[in-house]
Amino acid sequence: MAAAAAAGAGPEMVRGQVFDVGPRYTNLSYIGEGAYGMVCSAYDNVNKVRVAIKKISPFEHQTYCQRTLREIKILLRFRHENIIGINDIIRAPTIEQMKDVYIVQDLMETDLYKLLKTQHLSNDHICYFLYQILRGLKYIHSANVLHRDLKPSNLLLNTTCDLKICDFGLARVADPDHDHTGFLTEYVATRWYRAPEIMLNSKGYTKSIDIWSVGCILAEMLSNRPIFPGKHYLDQLNHILGILGSPSQEDLNCIINLKARNYLLSLPHKNKVPWNRLFPNADSKALDLLDKMLTFNPHKRIEVEQALAHPYLEQYYDPSDEPIAEAPFKFDMELDDLPKEKLKELIFEETARFQPGYRS
Rank of each mutant, 00 (worst) to 15 (best):
A2S: 13
A4L: 02
A4G: 09
A5I: 05
A6I: 14
A7Q: 12
A7R: 12
G8Q: 07
A9I: 04
P11I: 06
E12D: 15
E12N: 03
M13G: 12
V14P: 12
R15W: 14
G16V: 15
G16I: 00
F19G: 02
D20I: 03
V21C: 12
V21P: 07
P23K: 00
R24I: 03
T26R: 10
T26H: 07
N27Q: 00
N27K: 14
S29L: 00
S29F: 05
Y30N: 14
Y30S: 11
G32E: 02
G32K: 00
E33S: 00
E33W: 05
E33I: 00
E33C: 00
E33H: 04
G34R: 12
V39N: 01
A42N: 00
A42E: 13
Y43F: 14
D44N: 13
N47Q: 10
K48R: 12
V49A: 15
V49E: 15
R50V: 14
I53R: 02
K54L: 04
K54V: 11
K55R: 14
I56Y: 15
H61Y: 14
Y64G: 07
Q66K: 15
Q66W: 04
R67W: 12
T68I: 12
L69V: 07
R70S: 14
E71N: 05
I74M: 00
I74V: 10
L75K: 07
L76Y: 01
L76T: 00
F78D: 05
F78L: 14
F78N: 12
F78V: 13
E81M: 01
E81T: 05
G85L: 06
D88K: 05
A92S: 14
P93Q: 14
T94V: 01
T94L: 09
E96F: 01
E96P: 03
M98Q: 01
K99Q: 13
K99H: 03
D100T: 05
D100C: 13
D100I: 08
V101G: 13
V104E: 09
Q105E: 15
D106L: 01
M108S: 05
T110G: 10
T110W: 14
D111I: 00
L112P: 06
Y113F: 15
L115F: 01
L115N: 00
L116P: 11
K117H: 05
K117F: 07
K117V: 01
T118P: 15
T118W: 08
Q119F: 06
N123F: 09
N123S: 07
D124F: 09
H125V: 04
F129L: 13
L130K: 02
Y131H: 03
Q132P: 11
I133F: 15
L134G: 05
R135E: 02
L137Q: 15
L137P: 00
Y139K: 11
Y139Q: 08
Y139V: 04
S142P: 02
S142K: 07
A143T: 11
A143M: 04
V145R: 06
L146N: 02
H147V: 03
D149Q: 04
S153K: 10
S153E: 03
N154M: 10
N154Y: 14
N154P: 01
L155D: 05
L155Q: 15
L156Q: 14
L157P: 11
T159K: 09
T160N: 10
C161Y: 05
C161W: 03
L163M: 12
K164N: 15
K164V: 06
I165R: 01
C166A: 09
F168C: 08
F168P: 10
G169F: 09
G169P: 09
L170Y: 02
R172D: 07
R172E: 09
A174M: 13
D179M: 07
D179S: 05
H180L: 15
H180E: 09
G182H: 06
L184W: 11
L184V: 04
L184P: 08
L184S: 11
V188K: 09
A189L: 10
A189H: 05
T190F: 05
T190G: 11
T190A: 13
W192Y: 08
W192M: 12
W192P: 09
W192S: 12
R194F: 04
R194I: 14
E197S: 10
E197R: 12
E197C: 05
N201G: 03
K203E: 13
Y205M: 06
T206R: 07
T206P: 13
K207C: 12
I209Y: 12
I209K: 11
I209W: 11
D210F: 05
I211V: 10
W212G: 09
W212V: 01
V214C: 09
G215T: 02
C216W: 09
I217F: 14
L218N: 06
E220P: 02
M221S: 08
M221A: 04
M221Y: 03
L222C: 10
N224I: 15
P226R: 08
P229F: 05
P229K: 06
K231W: 01
L234S: 09
L234W: 02
L234Y: 12
N238F: 11
N238C: 12
H239V: 00
I240M: 09
I240G: 09
I240T: 00
G242F: 09
G242M: 09
G245D: 13
S246P: 00
E250P: 03
D251I: 01
D251C: 10
L252Y: 04
L252T: 11
C254D: 07
C254H: 05
C254E: 04
I255M: 02
L258Q: 15
A260D: 12
A260F: 03
R261L: 14
Y263E: 03
L264R: 00
L264F: 08
L265E: 09
S266R: 15
L267A: 04
L267R: 00
P268G: 02
P268D: 07
V273G: 00
P274W: 08
W275D: 10
W275G: 00
R277V: 08
R277Y: 06
L278Q: 15
P280S: 10
A282Q: 02
A282W: 07
D283C: 03
D283G: 06
S284H: 05
K285E: 12
A286L: 09
L287H: 13
D288I: 09
L289R: 07
L289A: 04
D291L: 06
D291I: 03
K292F: 07
M293I: 14
L294D: 10
N297S: 13
H299M: 06
K300F: 12
R301G: 00
I302Y: 08
I302P: 06
E303Q: 01
V304G: 15
V304M: 04
E305V: 14
Q306R: 11
A307I: 00
A307P: 10
A307S: 14
H310R: 03
H310A: 03
Y312P: 03
L313M: 15
L313G: 09
Y316I: 07
P319T: 14
S320Q: 11
D321Y: 15
E322W: 04
P323S: 11
E326Y: 04
P328A: 11
K330N: 13
D332Q: 02
D332N: 13
M333C: 06
L335H: 13
D337C: 04
D337H: 11
E341V: 14
E341I: 08
K342P: 02
K342M: 07
L343M: 12
L343I: 09
L343C: 07
E345D: 15
L346K: 11
I347Q: 11
F348A: 08
F348C: 11
E350D: 15
E350Q: 10
R353V: 09
R353N: 04
Q355K: 14
G357Q: 12
G357W: 05
G357V: 15
Y358G: 11
R359C: 08
R359T: 11
